[in-house]
Design a protein around this nucleic acid. Sequence first.
DNA 1: GTATCATATTCCTATATGGGAATATGTCAA
DNA 2: TTGACATATTCCCATATAGGAATATGATAC
Lengths: 119, 119
Amino acid sequence: MPRAATTTDVFNAIAEPRRRQIVDLLARHGALAVGTIVVALGLPQPAVSKHLGVLREVGIVTAAKDGRQRLYELQASQLKPVHDWVKAYERFWTQQLDRIKRRAERKAKERANNPDEKA
Amino acid sequence: MPRAATTTDVFNAIAEPRRRQIVDLLARHGALAVGTIVVALGLPQPAVSKHLGVLREVGIVTAAKDGRQRLYELQASQLKPVHDWVKAYERFWTQQLDRIKRRAERKAKERANNPDEKA
DNA sequence: GTATCATATTCCTATATGGGAATATGTCAA
DNA sequence: TTGACATATTCCCATATAGGAATATGATAC
């Protein structure tokens, strides 16, 4: 079996760096025309259209006609499954940071109590 | 250009549902032998070994020899980039939930004030 | 209608799968 | 050494790209 299609779920859709760039861009600027994205990312227009097609199929973006342009808007809520999954691991690095922080504070306190002691 | 390799970055590595299952399993149970994962997920052993190989290559897991077994341990901190990226979008659905909640509360208050009014 | 602008689609290609089967490697036990 | 056990690797295949080039579609202006 080959790899699952990028259009089957959000995890596959955002595995592509360019698609994440498009998402980021739409998050910063609201709805954008394809041409704007083309200019912003410096990619060929067909490439952008294809990536938008993938994002559209999984629901991460929606398109609205506007004259001869098409405005794409982010539907960020579709990213929630990714957030939910990875959030479960948040504690692993925040704990790590906490440990480092506490150790640093303890060391500082030791230094304060014993100013002449060597490391 | 084909799709990027699953070993190029964490986003690609976790795009595979089975690999996320393995990550979840290791998160719940600490270091596990390959055979344990095979039994837990009901996958063929070579499949599990291959997925572990991908996860190992991007650093999400590490392997330690233990007799004739190999114990795989999660390195959850490697998932931080994913969390960092998607966290930026958290506000989109929490805001949404806030709005829904506020609206529900407002409606409830209205009903309390006008018990006989129709919807 | 015709030319033009904006976007989507099609066709092609090289490549990266993920699964299954078979096999290789490595380790321990007798 | 030999055999059993645990895991990794190799080979093969069907499928899904992502990019480039060319073209199709759709809307607007003239």
